[in-house]
Amino acid sequence: MIAGNDPVQMTHRRLERFTPMERFSRWLVLLIVVAAIVVSTRHVQIIPEFLADAPSQMLDLLNRLWPPDLSYYQQGVHEALMETLHIASLGTILALILALPVALCSARNITSNPILLVFAKLVLVSSRSVNSLVWALLFVAVFGPGTLAGVLAIAFRSVGFVGKLLGEALEEVHMGSVEALKATGAPATSVLLKGYWPQVKPALWSIALFRWDINVRESAVLGLVGAGGIGIALNNALNTFYWDKVSTVLLSIFAVVIAAELVVTQIRKRII
């Protein structure tokens, strides 16, 4: 990275791409990364026999998984799969509804109250820092096992994501039309609906689709902690060691996730 090795250059001036401080920071990052890896390798508890055994165990597992028991799909998977999709969709819609006021409060060009701004940021950060499985555990404890807990878990996890991106989109709004509306004496709701909304609409749809795609994946595991959906079918099959049923569930999750991704990319191409 040092561009001054050429003797002709050396006689004139050493050209360097980075300042000493930048170089020091780069080395520091490298050092921390290497140290972290070395310490983790030494300290982590891996039983060597398990590691040596892993390939043969994996092969054994694959043998058990294949062929999948496709008849299980009609018995229990289909309904659970639909429930998973409902959890993902309802959770996303609820998250959009909940995120809207928070995003409005977190956008600096709309909210001027500093306490409200900090509070909104705090809500967004805490929503994102708690994993959807933890939210699901909390809501299962509160509302009992079932779909409701799953929907709420997905919604509360998504609020942080949607709210943050929507807030950023609101801050990037071109203020000209907003000021023009304000100058005509339009009430606050009209300013929001006719000034901000048309400008953030594409961003909002794109965020919603993106999050829905993520939520389809996430809602597939919520059943493991009792929050409804395909995870319950997976858990049942796992606990009874019906591996051919497990592979049916996994295949259907795979198909749904791929289908969701295709749908999202198609809609994105058409609308946005």
């Binding site: 039983i47 398990f50 055994d53 892993a54 597992l61």
Partner: peptide, 8 residues
């Protein structure tokens, strides 16, 4: 299921 419980 394949490599047992634990960090691995």
């Amino acid at each position: 299921k394949a490599v047992g419980f634990g960090a691995l």
